[in-house]
Design a protein around this nucleic acid. Structure first.
Lengths: 262, 262
DNA sequence: CGAAGGCTTGATAGACCTCAAACACAGTGG
DNA sequence: CCACTGTGTTTGAGGTCTATCAAGCCTTCG
């Protein structure tokens, strides 16, 4: 009670907003877990984070959070569900640029690059919180440790883009799929989601195809191979890793690029 | 004289360093031009930038500035020449992740991610300046506008990675090459290098292949097509754009992702 | 002048794509 | 309850972009 009262202190500037802290069910815990893994945070930092004003909402699958060209005034924190960033080409082709799990602030970059150069969409029914840019800027200014954690997060995002470049440029379809599964399982593990060998992964084969630069048909055939070899189970929105060692070998996966203590 | 004296003021902490300002021939101008295009800078910001302590050196082509796994204590500013970031796979394959032109701070991310997840190498004889992390951190703390400019620069880097992802995932070899040539010509134009249709581009066909995820042989054949169609001249370390409009169309190039006023 | 690196060319091969159709499954509505 | 629809998955056949291998050529440079 008193905590919440203290947190409410400086909210009036953001009408219709409530502090992150007040979300029922504590869905912001994934963000906290992640940021604490990125930089040492003092308790006042965490308090400031939870004091962030926000509005939240539930969205169905395949809903756009932003479209290319948008100029957002708030950042989207994914509280629950699954999302991706993507680009559409004139030819109608789609390239998925990244997948996002609960705890990710999907468009943090919009704090410094006002115009979106790509879209963001949910892939599953999701709950999101919108954090006003202004409030984030202020928080970063007053709490440099939080700023550092957010910067590290953005830079790790860039490191993941680089890793995907390596995959699209040099790896076979088989390796790409294995690598992506390793990466997503790791990311989910890091925020404490999934029951280790089993992970919720609400992604269709077509979406995998758009992320990996291969056709849906070919994704299907490679998945069958991975299943036949006993490396994974995949379907109905979940991934089960049956043989971690073999999957990591198949994808030449080395988590160093995630810049996390293993 | 008095300017230089003022600039020398707080250098003693960095032995063997001189201020950026003191470099003969003003090779730091590309950085200044770039940062001014990224955020409004006051004259005191520019002065602080030029006061940065650094050591500089000349390197031949194909010299490594950093290797994967390094923990740099300084950032590399490319003053002159040409460089790239790359990853090597166990199989010996190489993926080039980005190309860098004078004015780029090639490993700015190492300010927040201590371990290099990729290598950096020169592609041509180059001059570089090493800027101590500590001095950069201090500068950013004292000059938030410079910090913002550097952040924007890092985020634009990430935007370029995303654009390359689109290329590797969805575009044909022909489109990829056309797109890359557009991008590099734009980047060079932005820092005032090159004489518009003609740009120094000291890159071999093998390096293009490693950047674009196609084989050297195929790069060669596509280049011949682009030449035969009268879009470009390319060879001997330089690129000439003979038909801008056609090249932009061939690569479906839209510079929005560079986040620069056109 | 020989060696090395880069460019060019031809022939063959393979990974992956496209088209097309059938199947499975969940949700909807009569 | 059962057609009906839509989305996602699976399978087959043929085709193409691009890789690989191999060799010749050119330029640069010690």
């Amino acid at each position: 009670m008193s905590a919440s009262a203290a947190i409410r202190r400086d909210l009036p500037a953001y009408p219709n907003c409530i502090p992150l802290f007040d979300l029922p069910g504590c869905p912001h815990r994934h963000l906290l877990v992640k940021l604490e893994g990125l930089a040492p945070l003092a308790s006042e930092d965490k308090a400031a984070l939870l004091r962030l004003p926000m509005t939240s909402g539930k969205l169905p699958a395949d809903a756009d959070l932003h479209r290319e060209g948008d100029r957002p005034s708030a950042c989207c924190l994914l509280l629950d569900g699954f999302a991706c960033r993507y680009r559409l080409l004139a030819t109608g082709l789609r390239q998925i640029l990244s997948f996002h799990v609960p705890g990710d602030i999907v468009d943090l970059q919009s704090l410094y690059l006002p115009v979106m150069d790509h879209g963001i969409a949910t892939l599953a029914p999701s709950q999101v919180a919108f954090l006003p840019h202004q409030a984030l800027h202020e928080m970063i200014r007053q709490h440099p440790r939080l700023g550092a954690a957010l910067w590290r997060d953005m830079l790790i995002d860039a490191a993941i883009f680089r890793e995907w470049l390596v995959g699209l440029g040099q790896r076979s379809a088989y390796e790409r799929i294995a690598h992506l599964f390793c990466e997503l399982a790791f990311k989910l593990k890091m925020v404490g989601l999934g029951d280790d060998p089993i992970f919720a992964l609400p992604v269709t084969q077509g979406e995998l195809a758009d992320a990996l630069g291969i056709s849906t048909v070919h994704v299907n055939r490679v998945l069958q191979q991975l299943r036949a070899e006993g490396l994974i189970r995949f379907g109905n929105g979940s991934l089960t890793v049956l043989d971690w060692q073999a999957l990591i070998a198949a994808g030449e996966f080395d988590p160093a690029y995630l810049h996390r203590p293993v």
